[in-house]
């Protein structure tokens, strides 16, 4: 797999102006790890990452760094999707479902595009679910707050009621608080 990527990259005309995109892949990965953090290192802000790069004689802008990060992640996703597609093709070949080189190419194309679509859809789903979960939590907090306000108001009414005995008041308050 790596051999294929290296060979393909060698054919590519490098960007003249894209400083970060022209760096060796190891350095690009190091930048991503510095910015995003790893299991053993903490993440850094874009400003901190820019400063870190400058110390390495790499001068770039906030926008370029952000663009690079997006580009790197997408490229990485696509490489993973390619690997997945090739694995699926291999499994199909082993099962005898794919026999010719042409079928292999066509299936690879289809599997790759399905995988990229699925990944995108999954990300969107996670995002939607995250928003929905946050909204549900907010709704719950709001309901709790309203319940508390309601209990406070009802308790205040009982406390200010001059016709009730202290025992009656206590019993009523316990009822309002759900203790009986």
């Amino acid at each position: 797999m790596t051999i294929i990527f290296e060979r393909m990259n060698a054919f590519k005309k490098p960007y003249r102006n894209a400083v970060l995109k022209n760096l060796p892949e190891e350095k690009q990965r190091a930048i991503m790890e510095y910015a995003d953090g790893t299991e053993t290192s903490k993440p850094h802000t874009l400003a901190e990452t820019l400063k870190w790069l400058k110390a390495d004689a790499i001068t770039t802008s906030h926008a370029t760094l952000e663009d690079f990060r997006q580009w790197f992640r997408l490229r990485q996703d696509m490489q993973e999707d390619e690997a997945m597609a090739l694995q699926t093709v291999q499994a199909c070949k082993e099962n005898g479902w794919i026999k010719t080189r042409q079928e292999e190419e066509a299936a690879g194309q289809i599997f790759f595009n399905r995988q990229t679509q699925r990944r995108k859809d999954t990300k969107a789903w996670v995002l939607v679910q995250g928003v929905s979960l946050r909204r549900d939590r907010l709704d719950l907090e709001e309901r709790k707050f309203k319940l508390l306000q309601d209990r406070q108001a009802r308790t205040k009414e009982v406390v200010n009621n001059t016709q009730m005995t202290p025992e009656q008041k206590e019993a009523r308050i316990r009822q309002i608080m759900g203790l009986t």
Partner: peptide
């Protein structure tokens, strides 16, 4: 341009 795989994108 981001796609440096052997496959094309639909």
């Amino acid at each position: 341009e981001t796609n440096n795989t052997r496959f094309g994108l639909t």
